[in-house]
């Protein structure tokens, strides 16, 4: 699905994520039961839910790592497996560091750069962006949680992608790191790029996101702009607990 931005004179392709009626079974368990939502360019979309609600499963299906039982997850109208140059389209940082512990941070980024046909100087650039230059020669196994998360971000940014997909990006970051990522993601969105991030931390997210999707027990229970989802509640956190506990009540 290609959309054209009417605000621009020249026709510009927009970068949209479309999740459509995703169902995922693992064994007898239904992890996702018909998840649908969109993440739009120029906006930061927060994908919220308690642990085990299906956030990571949804993102993994979007990135072609897991297969959906039914439904689709499309990046600009095509599934991940059909992307020509994935690194320049979607940058992803999922759980953990995504790196072998015996390799140095720099060596990790270098093989990724090779896979995407990027230069070694680009590796140094992203190391600078995430402030890892000083420890780039150390083995990943010696990294702290915060450093490992930043290495994951560096890998996601290598191809300067139009879309960023981040699973729990503020996990393990110190307050300074959280502040950095918040500013960084706001800037990405301001330059017209698409950002989708998942989190179970409401307080951290309210100041970062434009749109909110709340998932609970494998179902989307609310979707809209931040204001719409907060509605009559005082904060996003309250809205979240009201929405998720209602559903928990239904399930019993």
């Amino acid at each position: 699905m290609l959309l054209y931005n009417e605000n621009h004179n020249r026709k510009e392709v927009l970068w949209l994520l479309t999740i459509n009626n995703l169902v995922k079974h693992r064994g007898k368990q239904e992890i996702l039961s018909g998840v649908s939502f969109k993440a739009r360019p120029g906006r930061v979309t927060g994908f919220l839910g308690p642990n085990g609600a299906g956030k990571s499963s949804t993102l993994r299906i979007l990135l072609g790592l897991d297969r959906a039982t039914s439904g689709s997850a499309l990046i600009n109208g095509v599934p991940f497996a059909e992307l020509q140059n994935p690194l320049a389209t979607v940058g992803a940082a999922l759980d953990g560091f995504g790196a072998h512990r015996m390799r140095t941070g720099r060596a990790h980024l270098r093989w990724i750069a090779r896979a995407a046909g990027l230069s070694r100087s680009r590796v140094e650039e992203v190391l600078e962006i995430v402030d890892l230059t000083k420890v780039a020669g150390k083995r990943v196994g010696n990294y702290s949680l915060g450093m490992g998360r930043r290495l994951g971000m560096a890998a996601a940014l290598l191809g300067d992608p139009k879309i960023l997909v981040l699973d729990e990006p503020v996990n393990g970051l110190d307050p300074e790191g959280i502040r950095w990522i918040r500013t960084f993601l706001r800037e990405r969105a301001a330059s017209g790029k698409t950002v989708l991030l998942s989190s179970h931390l409401m307080g951290e997210l309210a100041e970062t996101v434009d749109d909110v999707v709340i998932i609970n027990h494998g179902k989307v229970v609310a979707e809209g702009t931040l204001e719409e989802v907060i509605g009559n509640h005082a904060t996003l956190e309250e809205a979240f607990f009201a929405l998720t506990s209602e559903h928990a009540g239904d399930a019993v």
Binding site: G64, P86, G96, A99, A115, Y143, L145, A155, N171, G172
Partner: peptide, 25 residues
């Protein structure tokens, strides 16, 4: 080496997720 699981405090990821988000096929 692709499947070597990271320590649990680092989130228990592994390299294969990175490898498969870099090469789509």
């Amino acid at each position: 080496s692709e499947y070597l699981t990271e320590s649990s405090e680092s989130g228990g990821g592994n390299q294969i997720t990175t490898s498969l988000t870099v090469v789509s096929s």
